[in-house]
C-alpha cells in the first residue's frame, strides 16, 4: 500500500519536472512582472527626464497620488471578500460637502471630520446591507447608491460650491507639510500601514480572505460572511470619506457636481495589485505597488508631455493588458 502511494507521488513529481523550467519563468513574470515594470518605467524616466528625479517632483507626485491611494486601499477591502464598490467617487464628494458645510456653519474642525466619518460609515452600511442582505449584486447596488448620493450632494448644496469658513487646520490636511513631507502622503502611509495590519495581521483579515477564497467553506468553519463583508463595505466607504476630506482640504472648496475621477484609477490600481499575488486575490502590498505604478505613470506621462486626457487611454490599455496577460497565465497553470 505504501508502495502505491510513493509511486503515484513520484509520478506527480516526474510530470512536474519537464515543465518546471518554464513554470518558474512564468511564475516569476506573473508575480514580479508588475514590480519589474515599475522599476523599468522609473529608470527610464529617471534617465530621460531630468525633472523626474527631483525632490520637488517626487513630493508632488506622491501628494497627487495620496487621494487615489486611500480610495484604492478602501477598495481593496471590499474586493478581498469578493464584493465591489463603485459608489466611492460619490462618497468622496458627499463627505467633502458635509465636512466643509460643518465649517461653513462654524461648528469647528472636529464636527467637520465627524461629519465626514459619519458619511463613510452610513453609506458603507447602506451599501453592505443592501447588497448582502438584499441579495443584490454589489456592482448594481453601489452604482445606484452612488447615483442617489450624487443627488443628495446636489440637493444639500443646491448645486453651489462650498468654500466659506474652511479652517486653516483643515486645509493643513491637504496642503500642509510635516518634516518636509506633505500631510496627505503621511496620511496615506498611515492608512496603508493600518490597512496592512488589519488585512494581513488580524483574525478579521484572515477571515475576509477565507470568505473571498471560498464562502461556503468559510461558513462551514463557523465564519459569518455577511458580517465580515458588511464591515469591509464600511471600511471602504470610510476610506472614501477620508479621501473626500483631503480633496477638499487640498483645493479649498467642496464642489457637489464634480464627479470624482479617481474611481476608475482606483480599480486599475487594485487590479494591478492582484496580478502580484499567486492566486490573483487583492491584497494590500499589491495595492500599494499599484498606487506607486499609477503615480509614476501619471507623473511620467505628464512630464514627457502626453496630453492629460490621453493618459487615461494609456492607463486603460495597460490595465487591460495586465489583466488579460495575468489571467491567461493563471488559466494555463491550472
Amino acid at each position: 500500500m505504501t508502495k502505491q502511494i510513493t509511486t503515484s507521488f513520484q509520478r506527480g513529481d516526474a510530470a512536474g519536472v519537464s515543465s518546471k523550467q518554464s513554470l518558474i519563468i512564468k511564475n516569476f513574470f506573473l508575480r514580479y512582472g508588475t514590480i519589474v515594470a515599475l522599476l523599468v518605467v522609473t529608470l527610464i524616466l529617471a534617465f530621460t527626464t531630468p525633472s523626474f528625479m527631483t525632490a520637488l517632483n517626487i513630493k508632488s507626485m506622491l501628494a497627487q497620488t495620496a487621494v487615489l491611494g486611500i480610495v484604492a486601499i478602501g477598495l481593496t477591502f471590499v474586493s478581498i471578500p469578493g464584493e465591489m464598490d463603485v459608489s466611492m467617487g460619490s462618497v468622496v464628494t458627499l463627505s467633502g460637502v458635509f465636512a466643509v458645510s460643518m465649517m461653513t456653519k462654524e461648528y469647528g474642525l472636529f464636527a467637520a471630520l465627524a461629519a465626514a466619518a459619519a458619511v463613510g460609515i452610513v453609506v458603507g452600511s447602506i451599501n453592505g446591507l443592501i447588497s448582502i442582505y438584499g441579495h443584490i449584486s454589489s456592482l448594481i447596488a453601489t452604482l445606484t447608491i452612488g447615483a442617489i448620493i450624487d443627488g443628495v450632494s446636489l440637493l444639500y448644496t443646491g448645486g453651489y460650491r462650498l468654500y466659506k469658513g474652511i479652517l486653516p487646520s483643515y486645509r493643513y490636511l491637504g496642503i500642509g507639510e510635516f518634516v518636509n513631507i506633505p500631510v496627505p502622503v503621511i496620511i496615506l502611509i498611515l492608512v496603508a500601514v493600518l490597512a496592512y495590519l488589519l488585512a494581513h495581521q488580524t483574525v478579521f483579515g484572515r477571515r475576509l480572505f477565507a470568505i473571498g477564497g471560498n464562502t461556503d467553506a468559510a461558513i462551514l468553519m463557523g465564519i459569518n460572511p455577511k458580517l465580515h463583508s458588511l464591515l469591509s463595505f464600511i471600511l471602504c466607504s470610510t476610506a472614501a470619506a477620508l479621501a473626500g476630506v483631503i480633496v477638499t482640504a487640498r483645493v479649498g472648496t467642496a464642489e457637489p457636481f464634480v464627479r470624482f475621477g479617481y474611481v476608475l484609477d482606483a480599480f486599475a490600481v487594485v487590479f494591478l495589485g492582484t496580478t502580484t499575488s499567486e492566486e490573483g486575490e487583492p491584497h494590500i502590498p499589491g495595492t500599494v505597488l499599484g498606487i506607486l505604478i499609477m503615480g509614476v505613470l501619471s507623473n511620467g506621462m505628464t512630464l514627457v508631455g502626453v496630453p492629460f486626457f490621453a493618459q487615461n487611454i494609456l492607463k486603460g490599455v495597460i490595465v487591460l493588458i495586465t489583466v488579460v496577460v495575468s489571467s491567461i497565465m493563471r488559466q494555463q497553470r491550472k
Partner: peptide, 26 residues
C-alpha cells in the same frame, strides 16, 4: 479569454473614456 465580464468591460470602458476626453480635450 474567459475573463470576468466586469473586469474586461471595465478595462475597455476606461479606454473609451480616455478617448472621449482626449478627443475634446476634456
Amino acid at each position: 479569454l474567459r475573463i470576468p465580464a466586469l473586469l474586461g468591460t471595465f478595462g475597455t470602458s476606461v479606454i473609451a473614456l480616455g478617448l472621449n476626453f482626449w478627443a475634446g480635450n476634456g
